[in-house]
Each structure stands twice: as C-alpha cells, then as structure tokens.
C-alpha cells in the first residue's frame, strides 16, 4: 500500500512541477538572497493573481477539449465598460457591484462563444479568435480608446486592500494583497467542482471522448455552454482585479496575455487534446511562469537576454513533463 502511493506520487505531474519550482527558487535565492525577502515573495504572489484566475478558466476549457484565446479581450471589454459606467454614475458603493458587473459581461461574452461553437460546429480556436478580435474592435470603435486613471474609489480601495501590512525599520512598507484570497477561493471551488461533482466529471468526459460522454448520458451542449460562460465570467473577474491592481483602465491592456496563460496551463499538465489536467497543476504552472518572469532582474539577466531565458526555461519545462508523461504511459502499457 505504502509503495503504491509512493509510486503514484512520483508519477504525478504536479510532484515534478513542484520539484522544478523548488529547484528554481533555490537557484534564484542562491544567486540573490533578496529573493527570500517578504517583499519579493509577496510581490510574486501578487503577480500570480490575474494570470492565475485566467488560467483556471483556460484550464476548464482545455479539459473540456476546447481552447479559448478570446479571454483577454473579454476581460478588457468587461472591466473597461464597467469602469466607464461606474464613472458616469459617480459610483461610490461597495466593491461588489463592479465585480458583479464585470463578471456578468464576461459570462455573457462566454455564452456567445459557446452558442457560436455549438450552433455552427466550428473549431474553438477560430471562433474565439473571431469573437476576441470583434470584441476588441467594438470596444475601441464604440466605447473608447482613452486610458482611464481616475478609477472609482471602491476599485482604488480594493487595490489597497492587504491581508498583511507592516512598516519596516527603514519606513518602507511590506504588504500582501488581499486579492490573492479571491484566486485561492476560486481555485478551491473549481477543484471541488472538477473532482467531486457530476458536472466536473462531465467536463473531463467530453474532453476525453465526446461520443462516449454522449452515450453515457452527458448533455454535451449544455456542458459546453457552462464551460465557456464560466470561463468568460472568470475573465471578467480577472479583468476587474487587474484593472484595480494597476489602477488604470486601459483598453489595449492584456494583449498577448493568452499565450502566457495557455503556456502555464499546458505546463501544469493539461493536455491540449482534452480530458486531462488538474487545478493544482495549473496553479503550479502559473507559479512557475511568474517565478521565471519575475526573477530575471534579481538574477541579473540583462534585458536583451530575458526573452531568451524565458523561452529556454519554458521549452525545458514542457519538454520534461511531456517526456516524463510519455515514459509513464509506456510503463503503464508494459
């Protein structure tokens, strides 16, 4: 029994990702001790919030056998319209309304994705490429192109919300952003949904084998509607958090974010063909990418080399997980 669970542990993608994360942290820490300072660690955690929430959405879509590259556009659309509306009514209430609004916009846009997908049987890559660019274009043509920096007070207050804050001896401040809790809660929620409910099993099932899932009795169409709307809603939440944390509503923000997020999800062990992946793996993938991108100055990599280093580490990491999973597949067959 004991040896069996041990073997399982070694076979798990998450275990190797965690090892990689620890090794990288130790390496960066060895080069520059400041890596382990609370300031740096808290700031790395803060950097995972937005990418992490996006990644949870993309994880769902990828597990269901699809792909979504429209979510950054949806996020920008949702937060920009929300902010513009709240500014026009001079909103000063709680943070709840902005979140709810942005989330609803995102969910509705996600629903459009799902409806297009199911009614025309198109490839998700093409559909989401189309909706993403249409939404961006609509936003810039009809809503606005100006960056808004005078955000409604509740959003500014949210960006200053910390669950830990301390003034150091030299007068500088260390703080841990409260927004991290939102990522944490969402991650737990989605983990439970995927592992413990029929809904979650259905999503794994349609990603693994759609025909088989249908025969077992899953309503494929309805599951898809759910997955894309949910991913849209997550994009809306991530968007409003991003906008609040950087304290700007910039309609050309987050461009190219999809690549980084998809890379994180795939790195986390989700299979692009669907049916495979976990929340824990996704979060580890995000952590790995944030760690790499956020440690280059600490290690002293000059600007020209930063992209090279990011690319090389990504190739190595994905290569390692792919090689390892193929080996364990072969082991299973033998």
């Amino acid at each position: 029994m004991n040896t069996l669970s041990k073997n399982r542990l070694f076979q798990r993608n998450e275990f190797w990702l965690l090892c990689l994360l620890i090794v990288l942290s130790l390496t960066v820490g060895a080069v520059n001790g400041a890596f382990w300072s609370a300031n740096n660690l808290f700031s790395l955690f803060k950097s995972t919030i937005v990418t992490g929430i996006f990644a949870l959405g993309v994880f769902l879509v990828i597990v269901s056998g699809g792909i979504d590259i429209s979510f950054p556009a949806f996020a920008v659309f949702s937060f920009y319209i929300t902010v513009k509306f709240l500014l026009s009514i001079k909103y000063t209430g709680t943070i709840l309304l902005p979140f709810l609004m942005s989330m609803t916009f995102g969910a509705c846009l996600g629903l459009v994705n799902a409806l297009l997908l199911s009614s025309f049987q198109l490839a998700p890559l093409i559909v989401t490429l189309g909706t993403g660019s249409a939404v961006t274009g609509f936003l810039r043509a009809f809503v606005g192109t100006a960056t808004l920096s005078n955000l409604p007070q509740p959003l500014i207050d949210f960006s200053r919300w910390n669950i830990y804050k301390k003034t150091l001896a030299d007068g500088s401040i260390v703080s841990f952003s409260g927004a991290f809790l939102i990522l944490l809660v969402l991650a737990i929620l989605i983990h439970v949904m995927m592992k413990r409910t029929t809904l979650g099993r259905g999503i794994y099932a349609i990603g693994g084998d759609e025909v088989a899932a249908k025969r077992v009795g899953f309503n494929v169409k309805r599951l898809r509607l759910f997955v894309y709307s949910f991913t849209g809603a997550l994009a809306g939440i991530a968007g409003i958090i991003h906008c609040s944390l950087i304290r700007l509503a910039n309609p050309r923000d987050l461009e190219g974010a999809e690549m980084e997020v998809i890379a994180a999800v795939v790195l986390g062990g989700a299979s692009l063909t669907g049916g495979k992946g976990s929340v824990a793996g996704t979060l580890l993938g995000v952590a790995l990418i944030v760690l790499i991108k956020g440690s280059l100055i600490l290690v002293g990599v000059p600007s020209d080399w930063q992209k090279v280093v990011i690319g090389l580490v990504l190739i190595t990491a994905t290569g390692l997980t792919a090689w390892r999973s193929r080996r364990s597949d072969e082991g299973g067959r033998a």
């Binding site: 520059n32 400041a34 890596f35 300072s37 300031n39 740096n40 700031s43 950097s47 991003h242 950087i246 700007l248 910039n250 923000d253 956020g294 440690s295 100055i297 600490l298 002293g300 000059p302 600007s303 020209d304 930063q306």
Partner: peptide
C-alpha cells in the same frame, strides 16, 4: 543596465518592484 518594459504599465510596475528588491 536599462530595462525593457514594452510600453505596458503592469510590466513597469512589476519590474520596478523587483528592482527595488534586487
């Protein structure tokens, strides 16, 4: 040496925070 921030306020923010630690 000078750092590259791709005209993106988020990257500016993250890199300057990192530089303050480093």
């Amino acid at each position: 040496p000078r750092i590259e921030t791709y005209d993106d306020a988020t990257i500016d923010y993250q890199k300057i925070k990192e530089a303050l630690v480093a």
